[in-house]
Design a protein around this nucleic acid. Structure first.
Length: 194
DNA sequence: AGCACGATTAACT
DNA sequence: GTTAATCGTGCTC
């Protein structure tokens, strides 16, 4: 019984819907022939050039090109001079939108995570967008790769969907200089732990 | 060519 | 609660 990898069509719809639907799914990175994986617990949606919090607000640039491509690809970028952040490209090709993966619960390959998150306790390995990329060994080398290819290095498998009463919705974080209404859009989704 | 700032994190007071 | 670390990106000159 092998887990089902989410197909491109999963991502080919409104990015806010996808951000909600990704909760409970499983992020997998094949690293040194070993699976490093975790259950997605927190996401944020970034939608189109009109969304002033979205990188695509500046239009199509070298960095944002991947977001304009087909759904189901990884959009990975570098920020604050030291952190990689992982997104899933959504909606039809030509419309720039992506879901930022903000937190996952460690599952497989915990020795790998421990090694990459030197000295930190397990609950702090992947509870942030920069932290999860570090724990999983994800870098810009994977930018643009398909997340729907089961033979690829990085993909997302179907998991246990999170029921509605276990999902909290709130404004996105880290975008404090963005004007309304974008600042308050409830496009951040968090799965409750209990 | 130069500059301000960022979808963050960890280590402070 | 505050702040340094650190550099690619996009904007201005």
């Amino acid at each position: 019984m092998s887990a089902q990898v989410l197909p491109e069509s999963f991502y080919d719809r409104d990015v806010v819907e996808v951000a909600r639907a990704l909760l409970g799914m499983r992020l997998v990175h094949r690293l040194d022939g070993q699976r490093v994986s975790g259950i997605i617990l927190e996401t944020e949606a970034y939608r189109g050039e009109a969304d002033l919090a979205c990188h695509a607000r500046a239009g199509r640039t070298p960095r944002t090109t991947v977001m304009y491509g087909p759904p189901g690809r990884a959009y990975i970028y570098f920020t604050y001079g030291m952190h990689w952040l992982l997104n899933c490209v959504c909606q039809p090709e030509g419309f720039p939108a992506a879901v930022l993966l903000r937190a996952v619960a460690p599952l497989e390959g915990q020795e790998q995570m421990q090694a990459r998150r030197a000295g930190q306790p397990p609950h702090l390995w992947s509870n942030g967008p920069g932290k999860l990329c570090q724990a999983f060994g994800i870098t810009g080398a994977l930018n643009g790769c398909s997340l729907s290819d089961p033979t690829g290095e990085l993909f997302i498998e179907a998991g246990q969907p999170v029921p509605e009463n276990m999902v909290k919705t709130m404004p996105r974080v880290g975008i404090s200089s963005v004007p309304e209404p974008w600042l308050s859009m409830p496009w951040r989704f968090v799965a409750q732990s209990d």
